[in-house]
Structure formats: structure tokens, C-alpha cells
Nucleic acid binder design. Structure first.
Length: 503
DNA sequence: AAAAAAC
């Protein structure tokens, strides 16, 4: 749930061991948090604060503004949620009157999924307190959100657009906000949220505590901080633009048209139980999910053209372990907390090197090891160079011989085995001798489910039973959330990109 | 060049 360090429960640290100044492992006791909060922390399975929690919690409790540089997976969410709850607790009351529950803490995030996840954390940490929290974001019915706001909440988690919508609808008043969190602030600026942020900030009392978290401290971020933060304490856990040393990063040079096959092959050969595959485009993500499904890998796509119901469904199913490959655009690059993901695959190298750092941050979480496997085609060399420059080291490059069927231009299929480094002249032979029988590779032999090639390309796509089930669930979910758009849900459920209204 | 986010 939270992005705190998950400690092995069988080796749980006794709570009493943490006396101040002792060499014992630190515990959450040291912060002076209320018993009701500590109880929830313990129930969540966390015993030892992460470095950012150890640094940020006392500073936030002291009421200071914070400029935090921390990636997700460092325990960032708890580092601001816990002290926010603590600071609001004295003002919490059990009255049913909405007027007694004004919004006192506002947490803004760039994506809907991240908002939902932060809200789940806040909910978990505050469950033994009278404090109320809720989350508002776009893509879903406003009415239940309006109703929750009308009843009153002390902690509100939101994406900027829908928040302003509620302000405009007069279902939300921000006049009593005492604490503001800008989570993934650099991402929000990247996404063009600056005007929205400025409008929101102008609605808030000047007298407040502001916490800004960002993966990088660009000039824009510094300017934002200089304008809206007061004498902030800088907290930096891992140097920005650095990648975790427990993540092994490998680049596979492949032909563009071999990429789908390469993904399936990497998943099988490395026996990856769960993996996020990042694509640069929404259409590419939908297409890859379909090809992987066809290849017997349970896969689903998550991107901005799918309905919110489908996005949530996909993420939940992935978290429950029902999906092997979550094929995503950069909507999932930041913030998503999925415990102990063994690997991420970059189907495309991201356009921005910083996004690479965020994408591979989805693996090797909380000290566990992980693999970041990137496919690089001939026209992505520039991106590779940019990444190596940003992380200040060259990446390991390996050869991958793709043996799965790969779609070719014009709908025809290339032969099975083709060296991927042909353009470098490192291949053994580009083509088999005609007439010579090639022995099946161990991969192919173990891959009995594979359909004959012609059949695959002649038959229309048929979703797997698992896919159909998920689709039906998504449609049902969508019907409940937004009864006006059954067609959109249906198209999205089949992995089809929906038409966007914007240009 | 692409993605994300309000109706």
C-alpha cells in the first residue's frame, strides 16, 4: 500500500527497542506521533522509518516548509502523510456537521492513479482517528465526490483540473487549508499544470505550510518554490537523476519490428512473473498488449485513452497478480507503488531521459533487486546517448536473438531467427540457407502454445478468456461510474484506442 | 514527437 519499507514480518523489530541515541534500529516511536497513528503504521506492517521519513517527519511536525527531493519508493508518501495527520489531529472532531470538517490539508498529484494511491495511504494511516479524507480526480462522476466534500473532509487529495472544477461548482472551499503538498511537482510542471497550480495557490490562505516534492530541482521548480514556499528546509535523500544501484540495467539492440517478440521472449526466458512494459504511445501500448495476449501472456494496457474505470481495473488486477504484463505509457512512469516488481521493460526508449529514471524506478523498490530491460532500435540511439549522459554511465548492451513471430511491414512475417545486430555487422548469418532445416530452439520447444504463423495473421484477434472477463468487469465498473459511455468502455476494453476530442 | 489532465 504505502511506499514505506516493508520489513519482514517474521523478523519484526520489537517496538520497545528504539530508545533515543541507542544504536538500535530506529522506529516510528521516536517522532512523538499519536498512538492512534502508530497503531495504523504498525498494522500496515511498517516498523522502521526510511531515510526520507526520518528526515522529513520531524521537520513537517515542526511546521516548516519542505523542499523534498525524493523518488517514489523511498517512503515519500508516509513522510508527509503521517505528520499531516498528527498536526491536524488536535483540531479533529467527531461532530457530524460538515462545517466542523473543513479541508485543512490539500495534496496535489499529477495523475489520477497517484492521487488514488496517496488517498489510500492517508486513509490507512488515519483510520483510527476522527479525521476524514477523500480523493477527487477527473474521468469519473463528480457527484459522489461532491457528496463526500459536502459531508466534510480534513484531508483532500486531488488532481488539479477536477479540484478547480469543484471550486467552480462551489462544492469545495479552500479557505481553511493549512497544509499543502505538491507531490511530483516537476511532473506537474511538465504536464502544463502551472496555470492550474497558480490558480489553486491563489485560493489558499497565505498563512500555511507548504511541502514540495520533486524528483529534480530544475530552474522552474526552484522558481515555483521561491514564489510559494517560505524559508523551506531542503531534504534530499537520493541524488536526483541517479538510478538505484540494485537495479541492473541492460539494453538490447533490436530491430523495431522485433520488439513485440523481444518483449514476449524476455518475459519467458527470464521467467518474469510480473512486469511493466513502457511504450511511448497509447496506440503502441494497446497494440503490444494485444500481441502479448495472443502470445499467451496475460497482459493489459493502461494509458490516457482508456476510461478511468479500465485504468483502475487494470492497475488493481496487476496489483492482485492477475496480470503478468502491464503495458503502459508514462501515465504509470511515476509514483505507482507496486511492491517488489522484478523487472520493467522499455519497449521504447523514452523521449526524455528523466522519464527513463522514473520508469526504471518502478523496479528494485525498497532495496529489492530488479532488472531494467530496454529495447533500443537503430533510430533510438540518440535517446540512449541522452540517458547515459544523464545517469553518467554507459549501459550494458546485450544481444538478443528474437525467435518469436514478428510482424513485418506489409503484414508478412520475417523468418524466425534473425540476428538483431545486423546493422552492426556482428551477425552470424542474416538468413538461413534455403531448404536447410533449423532445429527448434529450447525456447520454441517450451513454447507449445504458439499458433502456426499463417493462422495468427489470417484470423481476427480473439481476446483470451481472462481478457474477456476483465473487459466485462471494466464495462460493468464503467457503467456504474459513467453510464453515458458504454461504447467507449467497450472499445477501450478491447484494447482499442478511443477517439480523442482534442487535436 | 509523446504523454498527462476538467467538463
Amino acid at each position: 500500500m504505502s511506499d514505506s519499507v516493508v520489513t519482514n514480518t517474521s523478523a519484526a523489530v520489537p517496538e520497545a527497542s528504539g530508545t533515543p541515541g541507542s544504536a538500535a534500529a530506529p522506529t516510528f516511536d521516536q517522532f512523538g506521533l499519536a498512538a492512534d497513528i502508530l497503531k495504523a503504521v504498525t498494522e500496515s506492517g511498517y516498523t522502521t522509518p526510511t531515510p526520507i521519513q526520518a528526515q522529513a517527519i520531524p521537520v513537517v511536525l515542526a511546521g516548516r516548509d519542505v523542499m523534498g527531493a525524493a523518488q517514489t519508493g523511498t517512503g515519500k508518501t508516509a513522510s508527509f502523510s503521517l505528520p499531516i495527520i498528527q498536526r491536524l489531529l488536535p483540531q479533529a472532531n467527531t461532530s457530524a456537521s460538515p462545517a466542523r470538517h473543513p479541508v485543512r490539508a490539500l495534496i496535489l498529484t499529477p495523475t489520477r492513479e497517484l492521487a488514488d494511491q496517496v488517498a489510500a495511504n492517508v486513509q490507512a494511516y488515519s483510520k483510527h482517528t476522527p479525521l476524514r479524507s477523500t480523493v477527487v480526480f477527473g474521468g469519473v462522476d463528480m457527484n459522489p465526490q461532491s457528496e463526500a466534500l459536502r459531508r466534510g473532509v480534513e484531508v483532500l487529495i486531488a488532481t488539479p483540473g477536477r479540484l478547480l472544477d469543484h471550486v467552480q461548482q462551489k462544492t469545495l472551499n479552500l479557505g481553511q487549508v493549512q497544509m499543502l503538498v505538491l507531490d511530483e511537482a516537476d511532473r506537474m510542471l511538465d504536464m502544463g499544470f502551472l496555470p492550474d497550480l497558480q490558480r489553486i495557490l491563489n485560493l489558499l490562505p497565505k498563512e500555511r505550510q507548504t511541502l514540495l516534492f520533486s524528483a529534480t530541482f530544475s530552474g522552474e521548480i526552484k522558481k515555483l518554490a521561491a514564489t510559494y514556499l517560505r524559508n523551506p528546509q531542503t531534504i534530499e535523500v537520493a541524488r536526483s537523476n541517479s538510478t538505484a544501484t540494485n537495479v541492473r540495467q541492460i539494453v538490447f539492440e533490436v530491430h523495431e519490428s522485433d520488439k513485440s517478440g523481444a518483449v514476449a521472449q524476455l518475459i519467458r526466458e527470464r521467467n518474469l512473473k510480473q512486469v511493466i512494459v513502457f511504450c511511448n504511445s497509447k496506440i503502441g501500448a494497446s497494440r503490444l498488449a494485444r500481441v502479448l495476449e495472443r502470445d499467451g501472456i496475460i497482459a493489459t494496457a493502461i494509458h490516457g485513452d482508456r476510461t478511468q474505470g479500465e485504468r483502475m481495473q487494470a492497475l488493481d488486477a496487476f496489483k492482485r497478480g492477475e496480470i503478468e504484463a502491464l503495458v503502459a505509457t508514462d501515465v504509470a512512469a511515476r509514483g505507482l507503488d507496486i511492491v517488489e516488481l522484478p523487472a520493467v521493460i522499455n519497449f521504447d526508449l523514452p523521449f526524455s531521459a528523466e522519464d527513463y529514471v522514473h520508469r526504471i524506478g518502478r523496479t528494485g523498490r525498497a532495496g529489492a533487486s530488479g532488472d531494467a530491460l530496454s529495447l533500443c532500435s537503430a533510430n533510438e540511439k540518440k535517446q540512449l546517448a541522452d540517458i547515459e549522459k544523464l545517469i553518467k554511465r554507459p549501459l550494458e548492451v546485450e544481444t538478443l536473438t528474437v525467435t518469436t513471430p514478428a510482424r513485418r511491414e506489409g503484414g508478412r512475417r520475417e523468418r524466425d531467427e534473425r540476428p538483431v545486430r545486423a546493422e552492426r555487422g556482428e551477425h552470424r548469418h542474416a538468413r538461413e540457407e534455403s531448404g536447410s532445416r533449423r532445429r527448434a530452439t529450447s525456447f520454441e520447444r517450451s513454447h507449445a502454445r504458439q499458433q502456426p504463423v499463417d493462422e495468427f495473421f489470417l484470423k481476427p484477434y480473439e481476446p483470451s478468456p481472462a481478457s474477456v472477463k476483465r473487459h466485462d468487469e471494466a464495462v460493468e465498473h464503467e457503467r456504474k461510474a459513467a453510464p453515458k459511455q458504454p461504447l467507449a468502455a467497450l472499445l477501450g476494453g478491447l484494447g482499442m484506442p478511443r477517439k480523442t476530442t482534442s487535436s
